[in-house]
Structures are given as structure tokens and as C-alpha cells.
């Protein structure tokens, strides 16, 4: 077993003269640790006999000593330098750098998109059974009914445009501006209300999409099918939308419908069953 692979075989193999079978034999043989030592011993001998070139070991040693000296100086000054080096190394790759830049850009962009609403709008919302009255910058007053949300722009509100977004139900009391600036209530239900200065109520809930005008004049922009339409309301008008988007105007004797605080109690007993169901859905919504 000891002489399975001879020195001559190995030399021949190093020089590229071994057959595939010999290579496999050497492979098996070198798995043993003492054999491997012998393998490298022969390799060293062979490289000594048949060198590709003669590198200057003395010069290399001098360079090495200089390097060690620098290392010990570095180590005493900044111990982390050595550890940080590999990381910097990989940063040098241009490909990697571009990827970093791109991903940072994408993250910024996405977070910008994601938080755009929060940045641009101030949101007021009410819980179930809660109403709140909001005084806007232009002096207009909005009473939010329960479970409703009003979004008001943070920047530029009252300067050029007055636009708010309503989800739910709210009663508006809009101040007329000296420059006759419009106040627009946008909804997510294919209609919006444009006014100058009046009092009115808007409800966007699925069960009773409606606008009620107390006094003054409002213009209603709505979508019927795919066409945009508009309608001018007079005081006391109640406009309701059915699920297909059709509009019905009714005259109501009692304009103010929203009664803040009423929703806090659940008294369904006196209500007709259909109304109760609607009321419950309103609470659930």
C-alpha cells in the first residue's frame, strides 16, 4: 500500500503525462493524510526542479515585512479597519453600487407614494356613535356624523381652491369668500358638490347617497352611467341617488336631517323595520 503511487508517477502526473486511470488512482491515494503530505512533498520537489519562473523571495519578504509593519500600525490606531475592508471591497463593484442606488431610489419613491395621502391631507374621522364639529381654516364649519371621514388638504386650502373629500355623512356650513371661491365636496360615489357659501348636508353611504340643501345654492356634479351631468339645487331640495346613479329630487319640509348625537342611542323600537335595517347598516358600515 505504501508505494501505491511512486514519486515518478507523481512527477509524470504533475507534468501532464498521467493517464485518466492514473489520475483516479492518485485521487484515491491522496485522500489519506500521510499520502497527501507526500503528495505535496513531491509537488515541492517538482516545482524546485522544473520552475516556471524564479520569483524573488527576498524582495517579496521585504514587501511582506513592510506590510506587516503597516498592519501593526493600523491595528494600534484603528482596530476595526481590517474588518471594514472586505465590505468596502464589495462596494467597489459598480454593478453593486448601481443596484444600491436604484433600490434606495425605489424605496424613497414607494414610501413617497405610500405616505402621499398622509403628507398632503389632514384627515378627520369619527367612530361609531361619535360626532364632531370641525372648524376649517376658511371659517367654514363641518359637522361629521358617526363613522365618517373628512380629508382636508394641508397645503393651499382656502387660497386658490377649497376642496375636501368626504366618506360618510356630514353637515356643511360654508362661509362665502370675498373672491367667490368655490367650495367643493368630493365623494367616492360619482358625485361632488360645488358651492359658494351655504348650508347643506352630504351623505355618501351606500344606503342613502344624498345631498340636502338648507339655504343658498349648490351645484351638483354627478355621473349617470358614463356621462357627467350637473344639477343646481334650491333650498329645501333633497337629492338622492339610487344604485344605478339616477337622481331624484324631492322637496323636504324639514331641511336639517342630520341630528348630531342622535346616533349614540340605539332605539329601533319605534322605527319601521326597513328604516331600522338601514340604520343598522349605517352603524355597521
Amino acid at each position: 500500500m505504501k508505494n501505491q503511487v511512486s514519486k515518478e508517477t507523481l512527477f509524470n502526473y504533475f507534468a501532464g503525462g498521467a493517464t485518466a486511470l492514473q489520475k483516479q488512482l492518485i485521487d484515491e491515494w491522496a485522500k489519506d493524510e500521510t499520502n497527501r503530505e507526500q503528495f505535496f512533498e513531491c509537488l515541492a520537489m517538482w516545482e524546485n526542479q522544473d520552475p516556471q519562473f524564479i520569483a524573488d523571495a527576498n524582495m517579496a519578504l521585504m514587501r511582506h515585512q513592510q506590510r506587516i509593519k503597516n498592519y501593526t500600525i493600523d491595528e494600534t490606531n484603528q482596530p476595526e479597519l481590517g474588518a471594514a475592508e472586505p465590505a468596502l471591497h464589495s462596494l467597489k463593484s459598480t454593478w453593486f453600487r448601481w443596484m444600491m442606488a436604484a433600490s434606495v431610489g425605489i424605496i424613497l419613491l414607494l414610501s413617497g407614494l405610500f405616505f402621499k395621502e398622509e403628507l398632503l391631507f389632514k384627515t378627520y374621522s369619527t367612530e361609531f356613535g361619535e360626532t364632531s364639529t370641525i372648524m376649517l381654516n376658511d371659517g367654514s364649519q363641518v359637522t361629521l356624523n358617526a363613522n365618517s371621514t373628512l380629508r382636508v388638504p394641508r397645503f393651499g386650502f382656502g387660497q386658490k381652491t377649497r376642496e375636501v373629500v368626504l366618506v360618510g355623512e356630514a353637515d356643511f356650513s360654508i362661509k362665502h369668500m370675498p373672491d367667490h371661491q368655490h367650495f367643493v365636496v368630493q365623494t367616492n360615489k360619482n358625485f361632488e358638490v360645488v358651492v359658494l357659501g351655504t348650508e347643506f348636508l352630504v351623505n355618501t353611504r351606500e344606503t342613502g347617497k344624498k345631498v340636502v340643501l338648507n339655504k343658498g345654492k349648490v351645484r351638483l356634479l354627478y355621473q349617470e352611467g358614463k356621462t357627467s351631468k350637473q344639477l343646481t339645487m334650491k333650498p329645501g331640495n333633497l337629492v338622492t341617488f339610487d344604485n344605478e346613479g339616477h337622481v331624484r329630487i324631492k322637496q323636504t319640509p324639514k331641511p336639517r336631517i342630520l341630528q348630531p348625537g342622535k346616533n349614540t342611542d340605539l332605539c329601533l323600537m319605534e322605527q319601521p323595520w326597513l328604516k331600522s335595517a338601514t340604520y343598522l347598516r349605517k352603524i355597521m358600515e
Binding site: 515541492a44 516545482e47 524546485n48 520552475p51 516556471q52 519562473f53 524564479i54 520569483a55 523571495a57 527576498n58 517579496a60 519578504l61 511582506h64
Partner: peptide, 10 residues
């Protein structure tokens, strides 16, 4: 270095 450097380079 003296012992192995040159042969390792080769």
C-alpha cells in the same frame, strides 16, 4: 519565504 515562496509562485 526562502523555503517556499519561489516554488509556490511557480
Amino acid at each position: 519565504f526562502r523555503q517556499y515562496y519561489t516554488m509556490l509562485c511557480s
